[in-house]
Design a protein around this nucleic acid. Structure first.
Lengths: 185, 185
DNA sequence: GCCTCTAACTTTAGTGCTAAAGTCTACGGG
DNA sequence: CCCGTAGACTTTAGCACTAAAGTTAGAGGC
């Protein structure tokens, strides 16, 4: 997901070809389901590549942008500990330590000991970091508007509503416990 | 995206909270666009985690599953060179070399020199590899059916159609004019 | 027929991650 | 008080990847 380095240009067969090939190899396949799932995956991959290219123009990586977003989302004064950041980004604390190192070196955040509890560390967004976030945000929203430009208001509403339903379904199917997704032993 | 190792459980604010926070920090945000884009991203991340957990039960990683899929998609006799595999998976040839090493060690594929041109290498799916693919495919399609279970036929049709349109839009927005990346018929 | 050139991989160096062990601060019980 | 323990990060070891340099087989020029 996160990436500082460039990834090679990916070159897959067309979606139609892919689905046709799957049907040849796996009779039980529902082409409609496969279409939805494959299109979702591809769409996301391409979007991530696009975001990466855009923020790279600002001199930051996708990974760094994620950190900026998380700090801004936390609201003013834009401060979080490394542990909390790691949780929200889905990283290990160790990885967070190194990411903060880099970003502090670039002046995007500061890292300081908490005065009241010197075990704790506070990562705070700098003005430069906030500016980068804003610039990236402007690029991203322009890109997103452009992506959805052919969709009518009704279509956008319908798409959003369906995606939220699907998301709820995935999020509620929890790992073990009785979830049907995971016990296929 | 590809991963052998486990990733920490990610813990984000609810989608509604996130969108509300963005609106506080960035007035120009269209909440409907943001909802679609964020839901898409999250849905995908969760799905990838779910796939990873499922194939892990078969003793293979998500990365290995991608290779199996690509070989099967190429059609019988399920053979491709490392270079071609790398292109289709969006990896560098170097990464492909190592992945093939591992997979050959596990008996999922064989790696042999081409008899006619000894510079070329041929990676071929083994019976075991094909079996693993089939088992993974069964798990994946069950999961996907379950995910989409609340959607009516009409909704599925509409969703698929919209996603394809978006995908086409992203794929045609090509970076800097160069060649068309996607037609390899 | 050698010599270069190119294509297709492999190897080496360096990055960013996970897992697990280590460090350091605060807190609580004897 | 002093020691032990817990919590919050940091460090170390190892892995998978990219970029770039290295290797080797076949193809073409002269």
């Amino acid at each position: 997901m996160s990436d500082t380095t460039e990834q090679p240009e990916l070159q897959e067969p067309s979606l139609d070809e892919q689905i046709a090939a799957y049907q040849r190899e796996f009779r039980d396949l529902d082409p409609q389901v496969e279409q939805i799932v494959s299109a979702l995956g591809r769409l996301n991959r391409r979007m991530n590549v696009a975001y990466g290219r855009q923020v790279a123009a600002l001199g930051i990586s996708n990974a760094e942008w994620e950190v900026l977003k998380t700090l801004v989302l936390s609201g003013t004064p834009y401060r979080l500990g490394p542990g909390e950041l790691a949780k929200r980004l889905g990283l290990t604390p160790a990885a967070m330590t190194h990411r903060i190192d880099r970003m502090a070196g670039e002046g995007l955040v500061t890292r300081d000991r908490d005065e009241n509890n010197r075990v704790r560390v506070i990562v705070e967004l700098t003005d430069e970091g906030r500016t980068k976030w804003l610039e990236a945000m402007r690029m991203a929203t322009t890109f997103e508007e452009d992506l959805l430009q052919d969709l009518s208001g009704d279509e956008r509403g319908a798409l959003g509503e369906i995606l939220i339903r699907l998301l709820r379904r995935v999020e509620h199917e929890q790992p073990d416990a009785g979830g049907r997704l995971t016990d296929l032993d």
